[in-house]
Design a protein around this nucleic acid. Structure first.
Lengths: 317, 317
DNA sequence: ATGGCCTCATAACCTGGTCCTATGAGCACC
DNA sequence: GGTGCTCATAGGACCAGGTTATGAGGCCAT
């Protein structure tokens, strides 16, 4: 069992998905409860914060410990503290809660189109990866501000701004649409990724545009901004190996060995850090994009839009 | 409503927590279902993959659309595809599922101590932020390998390795413990963070060691590796403003304006990008740490341990 | 055209988890 | 020894989600 092949002979099937994950996973409320216990030091006070009764909290923590097979909390007559394992589990729980809060913030913005006080129009990459976090950061500053989100490409964003149907926009790409003022809030790069063990990971020379445009890739569906940018940069694309409707599904397919894909660096930083995906060097292709905040020329944002803009600039605004 | 103070007068209370988030949030299984629909293009096939009946899948998606107030899926007699809003929601859902998978991988490793084939000992920062991702990446390569995790400081990791009770270790800090060989797998920096609007964000000069050791901070509880490293680097710490049991709780407290804290850059990259936390420059303090894989000198890891090591080095191994 | 096959939707019923209120038990501090 | 805090237990109500069985609609090949 020592020197056998480290890489299995490529299952290469489309993609995984663990049906039992949802059963092994505590409910979101239980994770929040654990975080509240960590912060407040008492089951009862944590229960109060979450608006449930103390026995319910006691029961949930107990059930969680039973299901996970770990002692998480040291109870005592004057409070509860996390065990060492509990502290670790609580940190992991925090990541789940954060991702859930981002999901929630995004969904609310996508729905609240009605009485929105702050109407944001954003490109897909920004809406996917950056905007939910910004909205969470904005909430304590502007608790009463309902935010609405429209996602679309640069032209759509520009049109919404110029028609007065959006207060602040975010676009990606080389050019600032006509009639808009802009400031760069971040930079993004498209990267070529494969599963570890893919033949491309053993290349010595970087890929070039011709190779990228000639090889079948796993792509988002037609109309995706990233796909368009890529097609433009390399001069057309081969017929896709597979077309998927979400970036996450795409990453899962790549990780399972279905083939290479081109994705925003923002989308794959975690996977690269963990080695679930491998970045393939590319040469001679312009894959860097500016991510910019935009507004109608001469009308700098005010009110909530100004606050959101300041946030995106990391307090430098 | 245009030029009012962008920063509210500091609620500064300990920290938030939204009790209703769990109610607004679809169940994890529903999010997985959405991802499966995106990938497979059909409710029925998605249902099959998740091991539930087709009506259950239909009902879950319908309920999710009702609860979120968004049309997510376009149904047709020959399959289902995501709507544009559905694609965005599915991507956000993917982040939640990923965080959940990391939680699950971590918990399993923490529990499986019994028949583990690969016993890992890691420092807390690594166990918190990197190891779950590595374990997920390892699974397809070594499906049958049960992994166990012990978390502890460098001495504890070294002791476990030298006693033959762990197969591979990960430590953080300036020195490699005696008797171990090491390779650097990542770098980490401690950063000082506050809420946006905190007085420190308006400083012009960087902080120095004396200021850091003199001001009360929000800290992890006694025994935290990060806390020890910090205390050493600045020469002692003032009495803490607040002591919390998990990094996530700490971040929430800082973000809510309770005070400044010092955290691993790995822990706060998301918050910094979103502007929920602000990094305060520091000068004259050595806050960079090497994150190293370690093993008993002269006995390079073999088998699953070798594969894990290769993963952590980004395929360069 | 018509039967077969795929899709998703509806109906009726069951089960199980989770909540609540009410109460008990342990420890600390005045 | 009260009084106040902690967490645990018990009994009963409730709702979400699951299942099987069936219906309805479009596509395609015979």
């Amino acid at each position: 069992m020592s020197t056998d092949e480290p890489y299995a002979p490529e299952p290469a099937g489309p993609a995984p998905a663990d049906p039992s994950l949802a059963h092994r996973m505590p409910a979101l409320g239980s994770l929040q409860l654990l975080l509240a216990v960590a912060r407040l030091g008492s089951l009862g006070r944590a229960a109060e914060e979450l608006g449930i009764s103390q026995p319910a909290a006691s029961g949930r923590v107990r059930a969680m410990e039973r299901d996970l097979g770990l002692a998480l909390v040291d109870r005592s007559p004057r409070g509860s503290r996390l065990t060492p394992a509990g502290a670790l589990v609580t940190d992991w729980a925090g990541r789940v809660v954060e991702a859930s809060a981002a999901f929630d913030a995004g969904v609310q913005a996508l729905r609240d189109r009605r009485d929105a006080r702050l109407r944001v129009a954003a490109s897909l990459t920004i809406a996917e990866y950056l905007l939910p976090g910004w909205l969470i950061a904005l909430r304590p500053l502007r608790p009463a501000t309902a935010v609405s989100l429209r996602a679309g490409n640069s032209e759509a964003v520009a049109a919404l701004l110029l028609d007065g149907e959006a207060d602040l926009g975010f676009v990606e790409g080389p050019a600032v649409p006509a009639g808009l003022d802009a400031v760069t809030v971040a930079r993004d790069r498209l990267v070529v990724v494969t599963a570890p063990g893919h033949p491309w990971t053993r290349r010595t020379a970087p890929l070039d545009a011709a190779e990228l445009s000639g090889r079948p890739l796993i792509l988002r569906e037609e109309g995706s901004g990233t796909r368009q940018v890529l097609a433009e940069a390399v001069g057309g694309l081969a017929a896709p190996l597979l077309e998927l409707a979400s970036t996450t599904a795409l990453k899962a397919a790549v990780a399972s060995g279905a083939g290479p894909a081109v994705l925003s660096e923002l989308a794959v930083s975690d996977e690269l850090a963990a080695g679930r995906l491998v970045k393939i060097p590319v040469e001679g292709v312009r894959l860097t994009r500016e991510l910019r905040a935009v507004w109608p020329a001469g009308h700098p944002p005010v009110g909530p839009a100004r606050d959101l803009l300041a946030l995106t600039r990391g307090g430098r605004g």
